[in-house]
Simulated scan of single mutants.
Amino acid sequence: MASPRSAFGALVRAWRDRLAPADAGFTVTDGRRAPGLRREELAQLAGLSVDYVLRLEQGRARNPSAQVVGALARALQLSRAERDQLYRSAGLLAPQDGTVNTHVPAGIQRLAARLGDVPIGVFSADWTLVWWNTMWSAVFGDAAAVPPAERNLARALFGHGLAHAAMLPVRSERGPDAFEASIVADLKDAVSRYPGDVQLDRLVRELRDGSDAFAHYWATQTTAAQHTTDRKTIRHPVIGDLRLDCDVLVVPGADLRMVTYTAATGSSDAGKLDLLRVTGARTAIALP
């Protein structure tokens, strides 16, 4: 009978072999021998090292964390049932109903992967970044360089960790406080819908205790001021200011937000995005 560790590795290998590279946003070349994802591609998608993925597949890495299992489930585009099976094979409880959902449906990932010219980030209800494409990394920096717990927009805005220190300056056309206020309003809405989520409660308590600005917005904002479509100016360290339209698309049934950034065809900002697309400049880490 297979040990739990070998069963976990076998599942990861089998689902890696099953996933078509094009559905994960990778270009397929003629010299490719295997139909599924390469190990280094899975590592890139999950924000893990290639060596760690290898050790997981071989059963040499013990006790992967819930964050690691969740990242692998998203990268492998698993169904909810498959995701839960992967958690159980790691000796972990699967995410429970009534908690903030971080599972990105395979169809959403395939759709986002096919829009490769557009910076796209997918956020959960508490504004944790759970999926991003190559253009998002080119504009805002590779979020895989940030610890999973720090990949949260509210922490980037109001916290004191790595995400906050490295966040690019972002200015909203709706006013100097509109962006921050809307994120807090979204968190208040999430708390009302997920009152039993321990991690969400911990996030809010941490920010209320550690940030006067967050505490002020929490006391004054209503959920009617949630974050929606906006135009933002992003100060990129290589190409300067980027003035982009930010659209927030809600994923029905999954309680996720797909955030996209675009520029009008022929504009100077579109040209800057084209430059980033070619150079792949990944010099910053941000979660706007």
Rank of each mutant, 00 (worst) to 15 (best):
T99I: 15
T99P: 07
T99S: 13
T99F: 07
T99K: 06
V100Q: 07
V100Y: 09
N101D: 15
T102R: 13
T102K: 04
H103M: 10
H103C: 09
H103V: 09
V104F: 05
V104H: 01
V104N: 02
V104Q: 03
P105Q: 08
P105A: 09
P105E: 03
A106V: 10
A106M: 05
G107M: 13
G107D: 12
I108A: 08
I108D: 01
I108K: 00
I108R: 11
I108N: 00
I108T: 12
I108G: 00
Q109E: 09
Q109M: 13
Q109S: 08
L111N: 05
L111Q: 12
A112K: 03
A112H: 01
A113F: 05
A113P: 10
A113S: 10
A113G: 06
A113H: 04
A113C: 09
R114W: 06
R114Q: 13
R114G: 08
L115A: 11
L115G: 06
G116Q: 12
G116A: 14
G116I: 03
D117R: 12
D117P: 01
V118G: 02
V118K: 05
P119E: 10
P119D: 14
P119A: 15
P119Q: 08
I120L: 11
I120E: 01
G121R: 03
G121H: 03
G121A: 14
G121C: 07
G121V: 05
G121P: 09
V122Y: 02
V122M: 09
V122A: 03
F123K: 01
F123S: 07
F123H: 05
F123D: 06
S124P: 01
S124Y: 01
A125Y: 00
A125H: 07
A125W: 04
A125S: 07
D126W: 00
W127N: 02
W127V: 02
T128A: 15
T128M: 10
L129V: 08
L129Y: 03
L129M: 15
L129D: 02
V130F: 02
V130T: 11
W131V: 08
W131P: 03
W131M: 12
W131D: 01
W131H: 13
W131T: 04
W132E: 15
W132S: 15
W132D: 07
W132R: 14
W132M: 08
T134S: 15
T134N: 08
M135G: 00
M135I: 05
W136R: 06
W136S: 04
